[in-house]
Amino acid sequence: MKRILFLFLLCLLQQTAVAQWSLGVHGGANSTSITRSHADRVDETYSSLCGFDLGINGRYTINPWLSLRADLSLMQRNHRLQRHLNYLSPVHTDHRNTYLTLPLMVDFSFGGSKLKGHLLLGGYCGYWMGQRVSGTTYTMSDYYVFFVDFNERRDFTREDRRFNAGLSGGVALSYTLADNIALSLDALYYYDLLSHHKGYLNLQDYRYLNTLSVTLGISYQFTKKEQQ
């Protein structure tokens, strides 16, 4: 991360082109999977679930092919645990996690004056704001199994790491509608480098989230200022 920032600062110092700011909003959907250890029970699988991604983004254009982009996104990062043991097959838990995510990415752009392609690379930090779980659990007696549906907020425990960080990157298409207005279609991937489960001294069990987010955005270009 430090190296990316260093490269960016170098570019800033050497810039000869026009620098300009833009601010935009974006919204869309994502799909999140979880990467866990092989502690999984044989009848337990994890799968992706969809969520929303809403946010604002700012861009600082350094030169025609290089800019810096920062987002502030409210993202759901959802995934499912499903049991398969024959008489417990209805049992599942959908984890609906809400994260406030702040990605900072270098944006390499190419293409024409109106339609441009973008390659984004960077990292993000985030904060796990809340979690909700829904699904089916069970209780049982000696002879019977009873299934119970649930949909409720889940409290955090000391095992949950709420600060989150990782790598982000992806591709985007932008189209300039008018002088100051541009539309964009982003496909960004968020790759956790911090486990959201803290684990224990002698028993680490890491859990990482992976999110592919596709959003539509619109941005407004604020200023156009000549620089030395």
């Binding site: 250890s37 092989h38 502690a39 790759y191 956790d192 890491y206």
Partner: peptide
């Protein structure tokens, strides 16, 4: 720049830790 960025990305990708054996 692209090569450097790709190298950094690969470096970070290897930063995910392997879990202990969790029985």
């Amino acid at each position: 720049t692209l090569l450097i960025s790709a190298a950094i990305t690969l470096l970070f990708c290897s930063c995910r830790k392997e879990s202990d054996y969790v029985p």
